[in-house]
Write a protein that binds this DNA or RNA. Structure first.
Lengths: 258, 258
DNA sequence: CGTCAGTTTGACCTAGTTCAAGGCCAGTGG
DNA sequence: CCACTGGCCTTGAACTAGGTCAAACTGACG
């Protein structure tokens, strides 16, 4: 782990949660030609039908993938956090089949496909780690599918909360058992296949039962074990490494099970 | 395309729907050390928490990924057809987070991870094509998520039907506008987040409206345009190549749009 | 010709939706 | 400083898509 993670390149930080990088590898990442951009909230980064020639890394802030459907419906497929490359797939799939946008004001950086390809070719371990990330991403999609398809609202929200906590924990973006996640109840609904009204009521239930606390943008896990149970949460699909798991246990309570 | 696709190695056939293979590449695939196995219906190929040391290709038949949840619920994540390698991800993710099983009696073959890795390293275009497939797989998951989260039962079934038709078409497993897909209404429900009773009623509605015909195991697209509309189907996410798209149009009707 | 897996039907029930109104608060502009 | 706005959250009441339960039907197969 780097000595001063908050100053490290977000991509370095993310990859180091998965493998130990050599000095050489770290340099290669830091040498990537980045075109940084600061975006406001709710701006699209890439749109469906685009044919990108670059990938984007989230440096700071949050992004989401989503798709707009008939009748004004929307499905949010995932939330992305610092260090994620949500459109890595554009290296292989010419045309985008969904949108990627910002959730809040964010800093992102674009990397030309060529640079990405030669990084991966020249540093197979980095390539492997990126693929690994992409596969974990697919595992998250499956788990969301299970949530939406087979869990009721209460468990769905609980499940998402468990997931976000652990993911943010891994890159050091939690504060004890709390974290910032600036999404509205409507966005929560669009991610979970629920109406915002129902999200509201269910959130109240979760708060009332003492599992979580939630105020616009700031989430706290109050009772991890109960939350986990309500969510029937099993972290296997996150494919966390041991260090991340240990750190999460420490943040929650020595007795926490993950 | 190979002259006699029905006799070609299923993996060759699948990859050739994506790129032209050189003789060399074809040989490399055919030289893979396969351990074939014939399985009955409803048998697991790999289970959650397993740590596989090999991947499996579907040679003949159908497979599904799924997860069992509390209270006897089940979510099916995807259906797999000849040529698919549903657990390619096990190359990078040590432990399985879901099950893969057969839908009907099937022939599958196991390939050691090592052999897979050296195939991909020695033949980068094959590696790329396999990755591409994995990414298309992830795109399917997202689309299923949108279906389950934001479409109602009628559109959900319609959407799945469009998808299956095009996928099977691509590997030559359709017969005009019909295809065999041996799944029960209960499995359909578990894939779409519905109860089997509701699947039954909705299926009747789709048949009654003249969009499809459906008898246990044999599906026919009766009115593609109407089906597509009911499903609000946009094939972008399948990332089909032109040849596949053209072939599908031909199978449906010269006026079909995909 | 009985059994078993799958499909179909009916009746009733509920989780979640929709619509519409109100409340809260942070930011803005006068 | 205050009034005004615009997002977002909250609440209530009425409604519906889809679930559950249980029974009957169908057809393939031994």
């Amino acid at each position: 782990m780097s000595q001063n993670p908050s100053q490290a390149h977000p991509l370095v930080r993310k990859l180091e949660s998965v493998l130990e990088l050599s000095a050489d590898e770290r340099e290669a990442i830091e040498a990537l030609p980045l075109t940084p951009r600061t975006l406001k909230a709710d701006q699209d980064i890439v749109r469906a039908y685009d044919q990108p020639t670059q990938c984007c890394v989230i440096l700071e802030g949050f992004a989401l993938r989503y798709k707009l459907m008939n009748g004004g419906k929307r499905q949010i497929f995932s939330f992305h956090i610092a260090g994620d490359i949500p459109d890595l797939h554009s290296l292989y799939l010419e045309v985008m089949d969904h949108n990627i946008g910002t959730l809040v004001g964010s800093r992102v950086a674009f990397i030309p496909h060529d640079a990405m390809r030669s990084l991966m070719a020249g540093h197979p371990r980095i390539g492997d780690a990126l693929w690994r990330n992409a596969l974990v991403d697919a595992a998250l999609s499956r788990e969301w599918m299970a949530s939406i398809g087979r869990r009721e609202a209460y468990g769905r929200i609980a499940h998402l909360m468990c997931e976000l906590f652990l993911r943010l924990q891994t890159i050091g973006l939690t504060d004890g058992s709390s974290f910032e996640m600036p999404i509205t109840q409507e966005e929560l609904g669009d991610a979970l296949g629920l109406s915002s009204v129902h999200v509201n009521r269910t959130l109240q239930e979760l708060r009332g039962n003492g599992l979580i606390s939630w105020t616009r943008g700031y989430w706290t896990v109050v009772d991890w074990e109960a939350l986990k149970k309500a969510a029937e949460f099993d972290a296997t699909y996150l494919h966390l490494h041991d260090a991340a798991r240990q750190a999460a246990i420490k943040a929650l309570s020595p007795a926490a099970t993950i």
